[in-house]
């Protein structure tokens, strides 16, 4: 009996250790963002200290404020989400509900586009955007974000469209409603939940993107993920400020992630059930 107890205790300890390991870097960043630089650099590391909001004040309202970068991130993410949804909802409906030749191929094509390594997309894209003067513009960055947000959104939405019963549409057609009207009035309201989940994930992925952003950003368009580098230079690291910026960059996605908690496994594995694909 004692051996069994010991085993249970050991397993509990191991699982607690993993919980701590996952949460700690995030908690530690939050704590560091409330310290002064000298407290961050203290050895041994300080768990108890006089908290201050100084780092946040400097980062938000001081010189070299990251407010424009936060705004940049918001514009990119919201813009990507809107354009993606406008295109993905109709496409997903067609793939899930309508009969037409080449449907299988169309679905496969959407999945296959996700196989392309992003670096293979950004090299030619950079050349084209440079030629038409779209580097450091919102339209340039939002357009290329469609390369990963569209396939993802289409596949996630297809899974929701497939869940609604066909009778609803048939009843509407019998009443003489047009196809477009039926889609807008009958079908879309049925998948509101699925659309909301898709919006969350598209926003999240756009907010977190880094490779395209680092190549295409400049003085006008520079999201937080890229702007963070300003706080780490060869000469010096602005420790507390870096922590504050990290926390600000994490905040929206952590909130969204916890809100969409129940759907996260579905959102992360979308497309994989049918073929390959990745986030």
């Amino acid at each position: 009996m004692t051996a069994k107890r010991l085993r249970i205790f050991a397993l509990l300890a191991i699982s607690m250790m993993f919980l701590l390991a996952w949460a700690f870097p995030i908690i530690w960043s939050v704590l560091n963002s409330l310290k002064t630089d000298s407290d961050v650099l203290a050895y041994p590391p300080k768990l108890v200290f006089a908290p201050t909001l100084e780092a946040y004040r400097d980062v938000l309202f001081g010189s070299g404020s990251i407010l424009p970068n936060l705004l940049s991130s918001v514009i990119i993410s919201v813009g990507t989400t809107i354009v993606t949804m406008l295109m993905a909802v109709p496409a997903a409906y067609a793939l899930a509900r309508l009969r037409f030749r080449g449907k299988k191929f169309a679905g496969f094509y959407v999945l296959a586009t996700q196989m392309l390594p992003p670096v293979g997309i950004i090299i030619p894209y950079f050349l084209v955007l440079r030629n038409i003067g779209w580097i450091d513009t919102y339209q340039g960055i939002i357009l290329i974000y469609l390369s990963f947000s569209l396939p993802f959104a289409i596949w996630l939405l297809v899974s929701y469209f497939e869940d609604i019963p066909f009778e609803m549409e048939e009843a509407a057609y019998l009443d003489g409603a047009s196809r477009l009207k039926t889609l807008w009035r009958i079908i879309i309201p049925q998948v509101r939940g699925g659309i909301a989940v898709t919006v969350v994930f598209v926003f999240l992925n756009a907010w977190n993107e880094f490779l395209f952003a680092v190549v295409l950003s400049g003085n006008t368009v520079r999201p937080v993920t890229v702007a963070m580098f300003n706080f780490v230079s060869v000469e010096q690291t602005l420790w507390a400020k870096l922590a504050a910026v990290s926390v600000l960059a994490m905040l929206p996605v952590v909130v969204l992630g916890v809100v969409a908690q129940k759907h996260i496994v579905k959102g992360l594995t979308v497309g994989a059930v049918k073929g390959g694909g990745r986030r």
């Binding site: 995030i26 880094f210 996605v253």
Partner: peptide, 21 residues
Amino acid sequence: VIAILPVVLSPAVVGMIWRTF
């Protein structure tokens, strides 16, 4: 809930936190 936290973060932010703190 805890498992969600690392997964939703930007790899760029994660890299930065690990590199420094």
